[in-house]
Write a protein that binds this DNA or RNA. Structure first.
Lengths: 375, 375
DNA sequence: GACACTGCTGAATCCATGA
DNA sequence: ATCATGGATTCAGCAGTGT
């Protein structure tokens, strides 16, 4: 009976699980658009995509980089080239959008060669851009010819599936991570070198653009929860999978190249997941169960008739038995009266109102915390 | 004879001069596409454009203290759709391309709201992208609701008129400016505040998005020469003109708003050109990037789940994946938990917390040093 | 004069839930 | 779908005032 009840409650999830069960934590071999068709609609929580920008499409018709511009015929040719890249981009982004859950988010990384086209198409197909995040490389390749600025960064676009998506953003966790100031849109991280860089038997790097795990660590920590399913349609050597496993997320990879797949699989197999307790991250107050102000009276933490004041004692109000406040002609909730006495539109009564504790002013929020801690 | 010879060599320039003479160092009033038609083809050396960003702001936004954020809701930033914005963008970019010299370059600044569309259109009409340069703001507006990363940067696209352009890039000057290392594609500069920010008689900002002179200083220093003509089709309050005059470049501004024009003119009139030899004095040191505690986890120097203690092993805490610590009922950053366990108001977690290194206690600060040394 | 303290502000696509 | 309401949320820097 209990089982049934759970199944019933989680039918949506289970349906997804059924469709994904044999794909979870595996690498699908093949073209990403074709492979994504095998996944159920609305089945993954997040996507990280590192698409090629120097790609050869089917007939080898693309020159994704800009071609010579010297007259009308070349302009047409170039249009063909951009058009092919745009068509490719639109196709895989649409395929991603189909499998992404309504509240899911997608990350796409690129450079100035392709990121503008990618971003514009994402907007065109109604992804809702949340941030562009700049990865500044501490150790970029210098510009040898001295004709341009050292190309020292790459750009990631973070977007939700729709404008109305209620997406995951672990704000407090990132703030804790960042020494108690909110995380910015510019991240300074080294490129992938040393032991982390996968090398073949010949000592050569397996993949030309292997991303550092530190980058994916931050991506997954910020926008996914433990147990989430993360899709990477251009899996490469599996940085997304390795970090997902480490952080207790599921991954699904799609990759065409068998050598990359082999390297990625071996790499992921060697990853040790972190301990479950260590995966719990700093929670927001929003996630905490709501405690109405009246509970403080029920618990005897405050008595009806007691006087509350703002921090400086400028305004005062009396607590009534039903948990409403009275201040002059103003009555209502702690929030409403707090706003009214200040002449503001809104107010957080929990932090605004204080009670007298041994002669000192203490916010009533500390009383709420007592109840939360006891639970 | 010598004169003739010079004229012959510089005929292009002289023709330009004739057509531009009465426009140099002036502000043209009106719509930028219409005004640019008045300029000769191939007549300006460089362009800096700060077009509307098409922000599409929703309702009001308040800070945590309930004060209202003065958002950019001006009519000039309103567009009906992406299509309308694209048409506008294409039109002014084409107009710019016509007046730009074959070897000229253009800078366009924007945010994630518009920059992807701008960049894609620039590629479509055969501008040749040279760099995207990220302006990281030292003091950006925070994210007040904790729903996204702090939007802490803007993006500039730098492009030559054609792929074959022999454009100006003052590599050596920039390198000298940057303490003898190549100038990178990420620039850290404060936003325009304080006395530099133009204010009206009412004390309010004249323009909602005035750019800092330091930004234009680098732009013009890197990609123009003294005597060059710099066009700004969205002149606003004339930062481009002010810096151009200061650096011995000519400017041409186009602006629709008479109030902006008046403010810009007065501002520019007050500018004193600098002695170019003295430029080096204004160079800025690149501050070492801050390394947050979370970086130690990303780098694998500490693993989530590991235990930290104070020097004497009196208190201990567990590290979680987001870089927060747990010690009994206390959770938070290394600094916060360090303070809490000691019952203090503040604590430097870097020196307080130690990890076990071969049986000895070593402060976590030594791990941070490893990252600093590697960079 | 130095320093502490308060107040203000910046290109922002900035809430969630239940009735 | 709309509407009301509970209550969560900020960093760096400059200007002005006061001690």
């Amino acid at each position: 009976m209990r089982m049934r009840s759970n199944v019933s409650l989680r039918s949506d999830f289970d349906q997804t699980e059924a469709g994904l069960a044999d794909r979870l934590d595996t690498i699908m071999k093949g073209d990403c658009v074709a492979q994504l068709e095998k996944l159920p609609k609305h089945s993954v929580d997040a996507i990280f995509a590192d698409p090629p920008y120097n790609l050869q499409l089917g007939g080898g018709l693309t020159r994704p980089d800009q071609s010579e511009v010297d007259g009308v015929t070349d302009a047409w040719d170039q249009f063909e080239s951009f058009e092919a890249y745009d068509a490719f981009t639109r196709a895989w982004l649409l395929a991603c959008k189909r499998v992404l859950k309504p509240n899911g988010t997608i990350w796409v990384i690129g450079s100035y060669h392709n990121i503008f086209r990618v971003g514009a198409i994402m907007q065109d197909i109604n992804f809702w851009l949340l941030n562009d995040v700049v990865w500044m490389k501490t150790n970029p390749m210098p510009n040898f010819r001295g004709k341009r600025f050292t190309n020292a960064h790459e750009t990631m676009i973070w977007a939700s599936r729709d404008k109305s998506s209620k997406y995951t953003f672990n704000y407090e966790a990132l703030k804790a991570f960042n020494d108690d100031v909110q995380m910015r849109s510019d991240w300074t991280l080294p490129i992938c070198t040393g032991h982390e860089r996968l090398k073949g038997d010949d000592g050569k790097k397996v993949h030309p653009t292997q991303k550092p795990e530190s980058l994916l660590y931050r991506v997954l920590l910020s926008s996914t929860n433990p147990g989430d399913v993360v899709l990477d349609p251009f899996f490469g050597t599996g940085t997304t999978g390795a970090v997902a496993k480490k952080l207790g997320r599921h991954f699904i990879g799609v990759e065409r190249d068998r050598d990359y797949i082999a390297a990625a699989q071996a790499r992921i197999d060697a990853v040790e997941p972190v301990d479950l307790d260590a995966l719990k991250t700093t929670q927001s107050k929003r996630a905490a169960p709501r405690i109405p102000f009246g509970r403080l009276l029920e618990e005897g933490l405050l008595k009806p008739g007691v006087e509350l004041t703002d921090k400086r004692g400028k305004f005062s109000a009396m607590v009534r038995a039903d948990g409403s406040l009275v201040s002059g002609s103003h009555t209502g909730s702690i929030h409403k009266v707090g706003a009214l006495v200040q002449g503001l539109d809104a107010c957080n009564g929990w932090t605004y109102w204080h009670f007298d504790k041994d002669g000192a002013q203490e916010p009533i929020d500390s009383l709420r915390q007592i109840i939360r801690d006891a639970a």
